[in-house]
């Protein structure tokens, strides 16, 4: 069984520590692909406030992760998404994918980020230096990125049953 770890947390994560946990006892792994998302600055942005739907978030993250494990033959994966107020430059999301070979791990990382962005119930509110704040709007290009993976019954956002 692939080792799947899903967490939603306010605290920072330690990528090296999480990688060690993912690899423990997995001698069949030939590579771990990692993606760390960072709060990107610009336009006077000071911080993001991340909100989520407790319960549904974790179950969607797990469905996405388990789909990735099956689709790409992963030995395991770890997905950690932070919530709360995150200043510019802070890490916001970590995806680790372990597999026997490089290709599957790297593709799975992209797959998971594309699905996380469009199917896990998180919302970002931007805080600006001048005191303004605004909810981030969903981007059509994120939907397009997800769509190229086809329609996965396991994590399709419920649009097709």
């Amino acid at each position: 069984m692939p080792r799947v770890t899903i967490r939603v947390q306010a605290e920072a994560f330690d990528s090296a520590h999480e990688t060690a946990l993912l690899l423990r006892g997995h001698e069949d792994v030939g590579g771990v692909a990692a993606f760390t998302g960072i709060v990107r600055g610009g336009g006077g942005l000071v911080a993001l406030e991340l909100e989520h739907y407790p319960g549904m978030t974790e179950s969607m993250m797990r469905r996405i992760a388990e789909s990735a494990c099956v689709r790409f033959g992963l030995a395991g994966c770890t997905v950690i998404h932070r919530v709360g107020r995150l200043a510019v430059g802070m890490p916001i999301v970590l995806v680790l994918c372990a597999s026997a070979h490089r290709g599957g791990a790297q593709e799975a990382t992209t797959f998971m980020m594309d699905w996380l962005k469009t199917s896990a119930p998180f919302w970002k509110r931007e805080e600006f230096a001048d005191g303004r704040s605004a909810w981030v709007e969903a981007r059509a290009q994120d939907e397009a990125a997800k769509a190229r993976w086809g329609s996965l019954a396991a994590c399709d956002g419920g649009k097709k049953n």
């Binding site: 998404h81 119930p121 998180f122 919302w123 709007e137």
Partner: peptide, 22 residues
């Protein structure tokens, strides 16, 4: 769910904007 999805007493129904995580 879609707006055509059936609902029944005791369901939990959430309304929200398109998601923007990641």
């Amino acid at each position: 769910a879609t707006i055509a999805a059936p609902i029944a007493a005791h369901d939990e129904i959430a309304f929200f904007p398109p998601v923007t995580g990641g």
